[in-house]
Design a protein around this nucleic acid. Structure first.
Lengths: 335, 335
DNA sequence: TTGAAAGCGCTACCAG
DNA sequence: CTGGTAGCGCTTTCAA
C-alpha cells in the first residue's frame, strides 16, 4: 500500500496525495475529498521511514532515562510526551538501567533514528558522549551534566541546597548519626551527590558521625542498603536517601527490623514522587518539579518559531516537604 | 554523513560498505578493515530510515500499554526489551492511559513505523482495531483479548480463577461484606473483571453484600475509591482490588481513616508487583508472571527460524500469595 | 570479492 | 491547483 496506489485510485498524482496528507498548499476541495476517500478505502497509512528520508526531518524526539521505573523519570517522560503529542511529535524512550554501555548504545540508536531532539536524563554521562552529541547538531537537553555548547541545553537541580535543608533539619532535631543511602551511580568516583552529602554533614554537623552505602535504585535496593548499614554495626538515628524510590524500601526494612519510624530512626527521601504520600509513614522529602523539567525539555527540543529564544539553562530550586518520617532523635542510650 | 562518503574515503563502493556494516557476504579482510577505519574516522552511523526503507524490514518491535507507570506493564516491557536487545531488536513503547482514542493513534503510529511485530497489552481494545491489526499482516500479541487470526497471538490470564481464590479465601475468613475496587476500564460495560467479581461473590458467598467502585488506575485512584465506598455508607470488611497498584492507595486511605488492616478491613491486590512487598501491611495478592508474558511476546513477534513453531496462545494460571493484609472478619457489632 | 544500478515510499521543487 | 521528477540513504540483485 503506497502513495502511488492511493494516487491511482483517486485519479491524481502521488504529489497531490502527499499534499493532502500533509495539508500543505491549497488542493482543490473536490480533489482533496477524492484523495481522502481513496486513503480510507485502501486503509492506507504512510511509511514514516520514507517520509523522514525524503523530508529530511523527523517528528520524533528521543528521551534516555536511567530508570524509567522510578517515577521521577517517568513523570518527566509523561510531561514531555504529552507536550509532544499536542504538537504532533512523538517520543521514543530508552532505559539505561544506569549502565554506561547501554547509554552509549541508546544514544547511538537515537542518532540512527535521526530524532529531532534528544533528552538525556541520566546520571552516568561521559564527556565523550557529550562531545558526540554536541557534534550531532541536534538539540540535546542534559540533566545535571554541565557542558556548554550551542546545541546543548541544561537542567540543573540545586541538589546541594536540598540536601543542606534536609541535613540541617535533621541536625536541629538532634540527629548526630546519619547514614546516606544512594544507588551505585550516586556514589563512588562519579557520584557528585555523595560528596554533597558528606560536605554538608561536615559543615552543618561537624560533630556527627556518618556513613554512606549504595545499592541498586529502587525499594529493593533501599532494603538492602539498610541491611548493610545495620550489619556494619553502625546505628544511625536518621537515614538520608538519595531519592524517594529507594526510601520506600528503607522504610519497609526498618519496620521489619523492629525499628519505628520516626521514633527510632528518621528517614528522608528526595524528589517527592507520588508514592511518597502513600508510604508508611509518609515520607519527608524534597520536591523536584518533574513537570517543569519535561516542559523545559520540550521547549528546547522543539523551538517554537513564534516565540522568542528561550534560556539555555535552568536551575531548579528544591523545596523541602515535611511529612511524618522524621522526628526528634531518640534519647541516647535508648534503643 | 552517508554511506557514499564512507565509501569514498575507504576507496570502495557504497555496496561494499553496506556489506561490511551488515557483515554479510565475504568481504576481503583488508577491505573490511579499511571500511571500518573510515566509518570510525568519520564517526558515521547509518540512517535507520533509509535502512528499513531499502531493506523492507525493520528491527523494531512495538508495545502498547495502558499504563506504563503501573509496574505490571513495566515489568512486561522490561523483559521484552531485554530479550529484544539480546537479538538485536529494539522496542518502542506507547502509553494509552486507558484512552481508546489514544490506542487508535498509537496503533496507527506503530504501523507507520512498520514495526516488525506489535504487543498490545491494554484492556481497552476494540473489534475494529483487532481487524485492522489482523489485516496488517504483522505478528501481534494481545493480552486478554480473544481474536483468532493467523498473525494474532493471545495471552490469557485466568482472572476468574484468581478472583475465585481470593473471594473464597475471604469468605472462609468470615467476610460477608465485600467491595471491589477497579479502574474505569475494568468496570462498566466493557469490564469483564467486574463481572467476574460479582459472579464469584454470588457463587461463593451468596449471602454476602457487595459493592463495586472505580477510579483511575494507581494509588491515588485507590484512595479515592475507598473514600467513595465509605461515603456511600457501605462498610466492607474486605476490599478486593483489581490490581496491586490501586491497592497501595487503598491501604493508605484506610489507615488515614483510622481503619486497621487487616484487623478492621482486609485488602487484596492482584499482579504481585514488587511494591506489594513494600506496602504496609504487605499485600495479599495473586501472582501474574510478567516475565513469562514478556518472553511469550518476544517469541511470537520474532519467530526464530531454528525453532519449531510455537503455540498461538497461552493461558496463565494465577497463584495466590498470602501476606499480611488479610485476616479474619471483625466480629459483628465491632467497629 | 566488488561495483553498478535499480529501487524502497515519500517530499519538494519546477513546470504547466 | 496539479503533474512530473529528482533525489533522501541504504539494500540488493546482476555482472564483472
Amino acid at each position: 500500500m503506497s502513495l502511488k496506489e492511493v494516487a491511482k485510485r483517486a485519479g491524481v498524482s502521488s504529489a497531490t496525495v502527499s499534499r493532502v496528507l500533509n495539508n500543505t498548499n491549497v488542493v482543490r476541495n473536490a480533489t482533496r475529498l477524492r484523495v481522502i476517500k481513496a486513503v480510507e478505502e485502501l486503509s492506507y497509512y504512510p511509511n514514516i521511514h520514507a517520509r523522514t528520508l525524503a523530508g529530511g526531518k523527523s517528528r520524533t524526539l528521543g528521551m534516555i532515562a536511567s530508570n524509567l521505573e522510578n517515577p521521577f523519570f517517568f513523570d518527566i517522560f509523561r510531561t514531555l510526551e504529552s507536550d509532544a503529542h499536542a504538537k504532533g511529535y512523538e517520543v521514543v524512550v530508552a532505559n539505561t538501567d544506569y549502565r554506561p554501555e547501554q547509554l552509549v548504545t541508546s544514544v547511538r540508536t537515537m542518532l540512527e533514528r535521526r530524532v529531532a531532539g534528544l533528552a538525556v536524563i541520566v546520571s552516568e554521562t561521559t564527556p565523550e558522549l557529550t562531545r558526540e552529541l554536541a557534534a550531532s547538531k541536534i538539540p540535546v537537553v542534559f540533566y545535571d551534566a554541565a557542558t556548554p555548547h550551542p546545541n546543548i541545553f541544561n537542567i540543573y537541580t540545586n541538589y546541594r541546597r536540598g540536601i543542606e535543608r534536609v541535613v540541617d533539619y535533621l541536625h536541629s532535631l538532634g540527629h548526630r548519626r546519619l547514614a546516606f543511602v544512594g544507588h551505585h551511580s550516586t556514589l563512588g568516583p562519579t557520584g557528585e551527590r555523595e560528596k554533597v552529602f558528606v560536605e554538608t554533614v561536615s559543615r552543618f554537623a561537624s560533630t556527627s558521625e556518618w556513613r554512606t552505602v549504595a545499592d541498586e535504585d529502587g525499594p529493593e535496593g533501599g532494603r538492602q542498603a539498610v541491611r548493610e548499614v545495620l550489619a556494619s554495626g553502625f546505628r544511625p538515628s536518621a537515614i538520608v536517601c538519595v531519592n524517594d524510590f529507594m526510601a520506600i524500601g528503607v522504610l519497609r526494612e526498618l519496620l521489619d527490623q523492629g525499628l519505628r519510624v520516626p521514633q527510632d530512626v528518621s528517614v528522608t527521601g528526595f524528589d517527592n514522587i507520588k508514592l511518597s504520600e502513600f508510604s508508611y509513614p509518609r515520607l519527608t522529602t524534597v520536591h523536584i518539579p518533574r513537570e517543569r523539567i519535561g516542559r523545559f525539555v520540550f521547549e528546547r527540543l522543539v523551538p517554537d518559531a513564534t516565540r522568542k529564544p528561550v534560556g539555555r539553562e535552568i536551575l531548579l530550586d528544591p523545596e523541602f516537604v515535611l511529612r511524618e518520617s522524621t522526628g526528634p532523635a531518640p534519647k541516647p542510650g535508648h534503643p
